[in-house]
């Protein structure tokens, strides 16, 4: 349940990014969560709701953009959408690969009502 810590950090970032008088105007917070981030979106949304209950942010919604785990092979040059965490190239079997995406854990955008 580290989602609760993550949720607290998200709310901190929102408070730092939006002027205090506009907090109740927050319509939606857009989050980017990678497949290898270790965060379960449903638990995170539950935690966000729980900690914003009875605050200026209680009516804010959240959108989670899932970022797939993608590996680029340095041997065959191709990208593959692997099962989370497996870095071996699924096309040529090489271990010489780099992770292109999947580790993301970001507050991307905050959308205000007005």
């Amino acid at each position: 349940m580290h989602e609760l810590s993550i949720a607290k950090n998200i709310i901190e970032i929102v408070k730092e990014s939006v002027e205090e008088k506009d907090l109740s105007e927050v319509d939606k917070v857009v989050l980017k969560i990678g497949d290898l981030s270790g965060v379960v979106p449903a638990s995170l949304l539950f935690s966000l709701e729980a900690i914003t209950n009875n605050t200026e942010l209680e009516n804010a919604g959240y959108e989670v953009i899932n970022v797939p785990f993608i590996v680029k092979c340095n041997t065959c040059g191709k990208e593959s959408n692997n099962e989370a965490g497996i870095v071996r190239c699924t096309l040529c079997g090489s271990n010489d690969t780099g992770i292109i995406s999947g580790n993301e854990l970001l507050v991307s955008e905050i959308i205000l009502k007005n």
Binding site: I13, S17, V18, L31, L106, V107, S108, E109, I110
Partner: peptide, 9 residues
């Protein structure tokens, strides 16, 4: 209005 943040949580 949209505020672009792109900050690591």
């Amino acid at each position: 209005s949209v505020i672009t943040v792109e900050r690591k949580i």
